[in-house]
Nucleic acid binder design. Structure first.
Lengths: 111, 111
DNA sequence: TCCCGTTGCTACATTTAATGTAGCGATACG
DNA sequence: CGTATCGCTACATTAAATGTAGCAACGGGA
């Protein structure tokens, strides 16, 4: 049984451990972030179309998330609307196994 | 437009569409969920060791997430502490490309 | 037995994040 | 001009997360 070490840093959102995966997990772990990337998978959407796709999530938070995603380089705003960048599409690719997993998971009666 | 009642809340939001990926994205999109799975990747941790690993996140929310993850069948509590189930390890496997992506992402100056 | 440390877990007041509704300025089309 | 959309914001309300404290239960020692 591991013992408790001394307390480290409270740390703001996402760990300062220098591990990029932490920053990424933190970013993706914010509400609607994963969903937004998912909804943009097939092409750009206007902000309002995206909102419709996201079950009418509030524009406030969508705007916040879109800004974060743009700063992270995953999403860009073009004259087609909001779309995934090349990097964003790469990120989406990593979701593919997740999608397949979700199908299997749902058949096992996980809540 | 269907809306959730103010009182009840499904164990997993976003499942109205019947698409399991939505339920999964919603579950994983709650704060600390991704992180918890990540921290358990190498073996079980006691609740307090997990808390330490998660930058001293509040026990309240960790307990909430752990309960959700247990209900989803991803985490179990054994005499070793909290650990990933077989299903949970399967889920973690889908993170692997994410990890590699995070490394590349951090080198490209995202954010 | 009593004491001590650890376990999983909860109470609760405070702070932060998200929601829901409304509406802004800019742009485009008639 | 009117009116429709666009991206985006204000703001009051509500939900979620934080931080601190502490509980009951179990397991050694002494």
């Amino acid at each position: 049984m591991p013992k408790q070490g001394p307390v480290t840093r409270p740390a703001v959102r996402g760990s300062r451990s220098g591990r990029p995966i932490m920053a990424l997990l933190d970013l993706l772990g914010r509400r609607w972030t994963l969903r937004i990337i998912w909804e943009l998978r097939e092409g750009a959407l206007t902000s309002r179309a995206l909102r419709t796709a996201c079950d009418e999530a509030s524009p406030t938070i969508l705007q916040t998330r879109l800004t974060e995603l743009r700063e992270a380089g995953f999403v860009e705003l073009t004259d087609e609307g909001y779309g995934l960048t090349a990097l964003g599409r790469e990120l989406f690719q990593t979701f593919t196994p997740l999608h397949r997993f979700a199908e299997r998971w749902s058949k096992r009666g996980g809540s």
